[in-house]
Design a protein around this nucleic acid. Structure first.
Ligand SMILES: [Zn+2]
Ligand SMILES: [Zn+2]
Ligand SMILES: [Zn+2]
Ligand SMILES: [Zn+2]
Lengths: 441, 441
DNA sequence: CAACTAGGTCACTAGGTCAG
DNA sequence: CTGACCTAGTGACCTAGTTG
């Protein structure tokens, strides 16, 4: 069993896997779809040159700027095999791009459809503060390119374009990966990826100190992006480099295998993301070192994984990634049914209703209903009748006297969790939110 | 030549400058304009008391709440000498406020016309996370007061009210400052402000590595707020306190002279603002240390300056500071292509289309197309066919249910900024937008 | 402490207004 | 009828401060 893979070794392994795959007869690049020279479907040069953003980046003849991407050698599809919906502001005539083609943001979060802001990185081996990687993920640059393809599309289009790739293409690469994982010299068969016999992971008791971490560091389900070829590949469990521990570290952290599943190498990394990310367990101390490393590898693991969601706050990360731990936000606003943000003035309510109730305090009388005092109050209609909105607030039990400060007590928490469970079921069970929120009338 | 000014020394210097100036015969406070006792133009007491915002804050008899402001002893004008435009929602009868009078927001950015956001600070010497100052600039509190004076005025009015002060008043204080700068014991004559012989500034080659920094750290034009009496005063180049170095520091950073030009003491500081700001030049290294400080003072200088614009990304900062700012208006109306004014009924649209859609609400059917229901709808033709205009509105997604109120969320903002960038490029690229957006029949 | 929320801010827009 | 201009709300986001 192999020991510890260096980044180069890891790279080389996957690189050769790809290269071998490209030789196969049934490889996509041997199809006419990828025959760029005989393809009129490519972005015309003159089009590209009209837009400086496109200049050197979307040139389909030199698609990959970076040599660390596993798709480095995979061909760019030039031939459209299905149509992509587009809107009026799309730069060129819409043309098909394979979701996993280099230059596309396969792994990127749905909401990071812009790469214009992606840091243009330096050369390999440099340190990029914004990502916290010692080895700058040059793939970021790699992915700077094609924003315009999706840039002006709406989310839904992006999503489908990204993730509902033609099966053939998907399956081909998926099987390439899967076969590779069987190889004896695969990283997955190395000690480094052997979680069961690895003392390098965060000790449970540490994890448990911070709820935020519990699921994030679950190393058994490394990649969250369904459809990613690395979805099933293992996360490295054994760190090769040393890590400094806190969330604001400025020194080069340890190496993280850029393609390790669970790390979202391809995503646009928001510079602010993690400095505010949840951190250490113990107060003032650094994270307990594991072996001769100062930080648990999984912190990095976490950090990288958060990338998937870009700049989110803790709660969002937690719920978005794992939604295992129920959040109060799953319970809709008792007044209008919008997403709640906690217990305000005694009722689970949204930011809007909270602020509305606050503003309404002094004079309940000043509002007047122009209809029958039974206007509907939901997310879209809530602003149409102040009287009825305030009525709903009061009916929901909002009151200045009911203000809740400080922590949620265990009893409260229990009650809330019960309700959350109910709403989860509701959500899964057919989105029929019904009139649960209509506790009044 | 004096050495390093402490904050107290810096304060005291300016305090005494002001105090001396107030003794001068031609000082404003010796004019009848500032004779509050014999002045009927002041805010009437009963008015003040009507609005809790005014209560204790705008009491003109005790105008300064803080003793660190250089204008602490400067009088509040009570007598109007020119008129201020006002609108009906203004709380009191409009009355003149001298732009540099205490209680006015002389130093505030033009777009911070509300001070509701100014953090109400603690006592001197405490640490305020939000500003990153060890010595909390209490003047923030000081300047919280008079929002209502300008509160409901539009930007233009504010701007003129703030910055086009009566010349006499301006000139008086300007010359006071200028004279003070000539004094031997002025901070400007101290080593601390001597940029030419100061190794503590960022070396040029470092600055130049990152274009973004070039202008920001230009120490020759320290204060951006035209009209500020410190406009011409120097920025300290030599740090007196120690600074921890990285961009995500959590410890109290060094002291920054609260009144140092370039520091925007009055602005509301968003906590995340700068931790991400300085992206270092050199690979793998932390921010170049300066002397025995770990961070270059000018980064702080920059940092502070960014405050003016709150939490913006690099590009925004740059453009906001040094050129006209990028606004949503760069994105044309989705209906007619005219200049948009925001998101109305769910679509980026112009004032005209907004109002048109509003008027069209009650009777959606009443319009009729006299041609083939495919009339062109642009800036000039939009009024020719109501039917087709409304059709375009609906196609653009305008709907009463899509109303967006309140602030733009970060995600929305990101999307908008992406589109703005796109349209900027289009604009630069020869304005031949032609019928680009009309690609879908 | 860590987990919460009241309250504050202020960037935004619906809807009103009124001169063309 | 149109649309430039204005303001009362609105609500996303933040932080001080409270509580278990
Ligand atoms: Zn609500
Ligand atoms: Zn009603
Ligand atoms: Zn329009
Ligand atoms: Zn028509």
């Amino acid at each position: 069993m192999a020991g510890c893979f260096s980044i180069d070794e890891y790279d080389n392994f996957w690189q050769s896997v790809i290269e071998n795959a490209l030789q196969l007869d049934h490889s996509p690049n041997n199809s006419s779809q990828f025959d760029i020279d005989n393809n009129s479907n490519a972005v015309p040069e003159n089009k590209e040159n009209q837009n400086s953003d496109w200049n050197y980046t979307t040139n389909q003849y030199t698609p990959y700027l970076v040599n660390r991407c596993p798709f480095n050698s995979a061909p760019v599809p030039a031939l459209s095999c299905r149509s992509v919906s587009s809107n009026e502001s799309q730069i060129t005539t819409p043309h098909e791009v394979h979701p996993y083609a280099p230059g596309t943001n396969m792994l990127s979060p749905k909401n990071s459809y812009s790469f214009h802001s992606a840091p243009v990185t330096a050369s390999r081996g440099s340190f990029i503060a914004s990502t916290g990687n010692h080895f700058a993920p040059q793939t970021i640059y790699h992915h700077t390119p094609r924003p315009n393809i999706f840039g002006q599309m709406n989310r839904n289009s992006i999503q489908s374009a990204e993730f509902s790739a033609p099966d053939e293409y998907d399956n081909f690469w998926q099987s390439v990966i899967e076969n590779a994982l069987q190889l004896e010299d695969s990283p997955s068969n190395s000690l480094q990826f052997d979680f069961n016999n690895n003392s390098n992971v965060i000790p449970e008791n540490n994890e448990n100190r911070n709820n935020d971490w519990i699921h994030m560091t679950n190393q058994d389900a490394p990649c969250l992006v369904n459809g990613c070829p690395f979805y099933t590949a293992p996360v490295p469990a054994l760190s090769c480099g040393s890590v400094s521990s806190n969330d604001s570290q400025s020194d080069p952290p340890h190496e993280v295998h850029p393609y390790a599943p669970g790390t979202n190498i391809l995503s646009h990394v928001n510079r602010y993301s993690f400095y505010s990310a949840p951190v250490t367990a113990s107060s003032g101390s650094s994270i307990p070192s594991t072996g001769n490393h100062t930080a648990p590898q999984s912190i990095y693991h976490h950090t990288r994984r958060s990338n998937i969601f870009g700049q989110m706050n803790r709660n969002s990360i937690r719920s978005a990634e794992f939604s295992a731990q129920a959040q109060i936000e799953t319970i809709p606003c008792k007044v209008c049914g919008d997403k709640s943000s906690g217990v305000h003035y005694g009722a689970i309510s949204c930011e809007g209703c909270k602020a509305f109730f606050k503003r309404s305090q002094p004079s309940i009388t000043k509002y007047r209903c122009l209809r029958g005092k039974s206007c509907s109050v939901d997310r879209t209609t809530r602003t149409r009748c102040q009287y009825c909105r305030l009525k709903r607030c009061l009916e929901s039990g909002m009151s200045r006297d009911a203000m809740k400060l400080g922590r949620t007590s265990k009893k409260q928490r229990e009650k809330i969790e019960e309700e959350m469970r109910f709403h989860k079921v509701q959500l899964r069970g057919n989105e029929q939110t019904s009139n649960f929120f209509t506790c009044s009338n």
